[in-house]
Amino acid sequence: MSRQSPIRVVRWSGLSIGSVAVAVALTILLAAGPLFLGANAIDKLTTLFIYVILAVTWNALAGYGGLVSIGQQAFFGLGAYGAVRLADAGVSVYPALVLAAVLVGLIAWPISVFMLRLKAGEFAIGMWVVAALAHLLVNLDNLVRGETGTSLIALNAYAAETRHALTYWTALGAMVGLIGILFALLRSPLGAAIQAIRDNEDAAASVGVRVMRTKQIIFVLAAFGVALAGALWLATTITFQPRTYFSVQWTAYMIFMVLVGGLGTFEGPILGAILFFAIEAWFGATGVWYLVGLGAAALLFALFLPKGLWGWVDQRLGLRLLPVGRWLKIDETAPMGTSKSTESGST
């Protein structure tokens, strides 16, 4: 077939097959982590996994769905609250974390029907209102006791070491699972629709992409992911104080990670989460100035490098480690071909 046309569409490169293999090997290595890592390292890595989940799902929403939400803390808080409620009702703790996220995903569907009709900035602040309302309603629950909060006491059934390892594995599984789902989704026909919407919503609609349905799928998946992150955060900190979980700061972190890493790129948010994790470890203790720095970085990246660090790397080197798009290769030996091979990254 390739003899007829000098142009081939390629979905993998040697480098990207190699990097996926490295990712798989790294996952296996991380899965064995509790066998050789200390308690402190296990806790730190669990936090990193949660950050990656937050960054990847916010990027799915904003970078691919074109939906900038400032209210993702709604799902973060509801995920944790759901886990508290389910554990209180007698569900075993670790299944409760996942079940809570599934329930939040189910709630997100009707919310999406209605919020997705809002455009751009209206959607952004509209989601913030949803988060504020969710926070107030959770405060009404007697189990939570307002801002006093409660704890996931069922976790005390486990010895500290077992608990840390179980939370670590759940977080690792959640992170790898979500990245895997997104990778598969973006490489599927639906992924082509998603990327078409990202590039131009009206044009996508005109060639038959079901814009609303596609955005709903991303919205619900993002809500599920953030809820899972919230439930996992609860498993690491044990205490549930609504004010902490429904804080807009979570969305600020997501925006920082995605903008710095690379909005609308697949690898960027993972890079952003690792950078954020490192920055927090080094500067987190400086408190207010650290937050000023995060805000300023988000502002400057939005203004001067809107595709983030990974977008910059991609533009310079055409580097794709986890390719969700297609390369167009022109065969140089073909009679009508030009003398050089062209690689055009059409993510």
Binding site: I70, A120, A124, V292, L294, G295, A302, L303
Partner: peptide, 11 residues
Amino acid sequence: PILSTFGLSIV
């Protein structure tokens, strides 16, 4: 503009 003004508000 949503992202840049959000960053500005944090600052």
